[in-house]
């Protein structure tokens, strides 16, 4: 055991040395996207639906089960340039479920998919919003939203972080998440009620779950972890814990939407 570890460490040191000598690997492809017209976007979308949708979702919004990320946000962990995205689509991402596109696909097709993905990023300039963002910020402060939501590290933990919600949701979706929170509740925000063997009950937002275990955050922001086999029963409540914005006027909702839509990462 110790021997193995020893060899492992010296190998690591050697590799460090070799990498050093070789210098950083530079990607060979680095060019501008030649296929970025509207028709390219549409063609890219068709291929995307057929080949990528099963993991990323037909609307490219991502899928928790497959681990395929949302591609509509304009923020990419692995593809901050067009050329970088081209390589990700062409070659895949080593050691992940992200496999490269079929080798039969032409470079043109790959560039068209890049154009399609780029088109999904919401541009605030494309929208003419009735509300006013500065007033919306005041509504936000007055309506106790921050007891559940964080913006820039400030606020509560029993709702999604809204720091960049404007690049995730479009104005219609923002409005409906305010007026009709129950319409679409992601599993992360379901409530799980754990009835324990000793008769007590713990309830909280579903942070993470697998076949045998579940982890939740209770309303006091405490973390809990349970083996399902230790629980007497488990209930899932799929409605939202967010109160509908009933006592806000229509124009206050408009202002809130304008404010929330302005929350995006400066690039």
């Amino acid at each position: 055991m110790r021997k193995v570890l020893f060899v492992g460490l010296s190998q690591a040191a050697l590799v460090a040395a070799l990498v050093l000598v070789a210098g950083p690997a530079t990607p060979a492809r680095a060019q501008e996207n030649p296929f970025d017209t509207l028709i390219d976007v549409r063609m890219g979308e068709r291929v995307f639906r057929a080949q990528c949708g099963r993991c990323h979702g037909r609307d490219a919004r991502g899928n928790d089960e497959t681990g395929a990320p949302d591609l509509t946000t304009g923020q990419f962990a692995r593809a901050s340039t067009d050329a970088g995205m081209f390589s990700v689509i062409r070659d895949g991402i080593e050691n992940t479920a992200m496999i490269g596109i079929s080798p039969r696909a032409s470079d043109q097709t790959v560039w068209q998919i890049v154009s399609y993905i780029n088109s999904l990023n919401l541009d605030p300039g494309d929208y003419d919003l009735p509300g006013d963002a500065a007033r919306g910020e005041q509504v936000y402060a007055g309506a106790d939203c921050s007891s559940c939501h964080m913006i820039g590290g400030e606020g509560g933990r029993t709702g999604p972080d809204l720091s960049t919600v404007g690049s995730r949701l479009d104005p219609d979706e923002l409005a409906s998440s305010l007026t009709d929170p129950d319409a679409e509740v992601a599993p992360r925000w379901w409530t799980v009620r754990v009835n324990r063997a000793d008769g007590s009950t713990v309830e909280g937002l579903r942070m993470n779950e697998d076949t045998f275990t579940v982890r939740i955050m209770d309303s006091d922001e405490n973390l809990w972890s349970f083996m399902k086999s230790d629980a007497r029963s488990l209930e899932r409540i799929k409605t939202s814990t967010m109160p509908a914005a009933e006592n806000l006027t229509g124009s206050e909702v408009d202002d809130l939407v304008a404010y929330l839509f302005s929350l995006r990462r400066e690039s």
């Binding site: 990607p27 923020q75 990419f76 962990a77 692995r78 593809a79 901050s80 340039t81 050329a83 970088g84 942070m207 993470n208 697998d210 275990t213 982890r215 973390l223 972890s225």
Partner: peptide, 12 residues
């Protein structure tokens, strides 16, 4: 078992 994960976005 995991509570949460933070993935940092990196440039290429």
């Amino acid at each position: 078992r995991q509570y949460w994960r933070y993935n940092h976005e990196l440039p290429d």
